[in-house]
Design a protein around this nucleic acid. Structure first.
Lengths: 152, 152
DNA sequence: CATGAAACTCGATGGCA
DNA sequence: TGCCATCGAGTTTCATG
């Protein structure tokens, strides 16, 4: 992967709706070359797909929540059960197995505190094997995720 | 916003590269109606833009890191200075002002621990007014963020 | 006035030099 | 690899309920 591919990846993460001709202009490539590069990136699996970036606030999801979770047991079975449950709940947007004090970090979005309370009761409280749960609310988003910076 | 719009938003977050005809099929809409709905969603600001979803692992970014930060001072000036610095560093992918024990939550991606060490020295350690920094590594991604679930 | 169909236009795609 | 022709999809317009 050379300079042009990296620049292309950055551009596609920032705005994939631009035409190939436009993208080619940014990277100093011919449109056909640009087209081939993008195909190659897709085939290599670097580009998983394309998606619309949606504003959660406009969706009515004003509250972003991070939940740190500790399990009762760190046995393989307990973790598998927990992870399967996490994947089943649509309200859990993202989940990481973590190093450090907690076992898992969850990310959730809610309309307001009532809605979060509902999600807590209907989804978080039903996760199996949880011994402790620490909830942190995002008061303000300082910097929005806008794609990975492509390392040179 | 009615049922069709919500279904459309979910579909666009999952895969915006589908043709309008395909999307219209999912939502039981005529292609022209579907096109108009999407335009409306864009104009209302619900859709911020379109982007390629990139696989960080394939990019060589194997390590995802969450960094909790506490400032020396919670004065308006200290926070403003910190937030401006955060926005300047491309290696900081995301930043939230948080409730709870820490002040800020940062998200960073690195190729390996050496790379993270470099980012730490060149970027995180240069953030102004930091009194404590707690780093947590994601050992495994259980669930990837794939768009907000659209509340009905 | 909102909706659907059809024509048009532009850009993506594939073959060729 | 770059160019050109083809094709398909997005866009606009118009006709209809």
């Amino acid at each position: 992967m050379d300079r042009a591919d990296r620049a292309l990846l950055e551009a596609l993460q920032a705005d994939s709706s631009r035409s190939i001709a436009e993208l080619a202009g940014c990277v100093n490539l011919s449109p056909s070359a640009c087209h081939r590069r993008i195909k190659a990136l897709e085939e290599q699996g670097l580009i998983l797909g394309y998606a619309a970036r949606v504003d959660p606030r406009r969706l009515g999801l004003a509250v972003e929540v991070f939940v740190e979770i500790t399990l009762n047991s760190q046995s393989r079975e307990a973790m598998d059960r927990f992870e399967r449950a996490v994947c089943d709940f649509d309200d859990i947007l993202e989940c990481h197995l973590m190093s450090g004090t907690s076992d898992y970090l969850l990310r959730v979005a809610a309309a307001d505190l009532d809605h979060y309370d509902r999600i807590h009761r209907d989804c978080l409280a039903r996760l199996p094997g949880v011994s402790a749960m620490k909830t942190s609310f995002s008061l303000r988003r300082i910097k929005r995720f806008a794609g990975y910076s492509v390392p040179s």
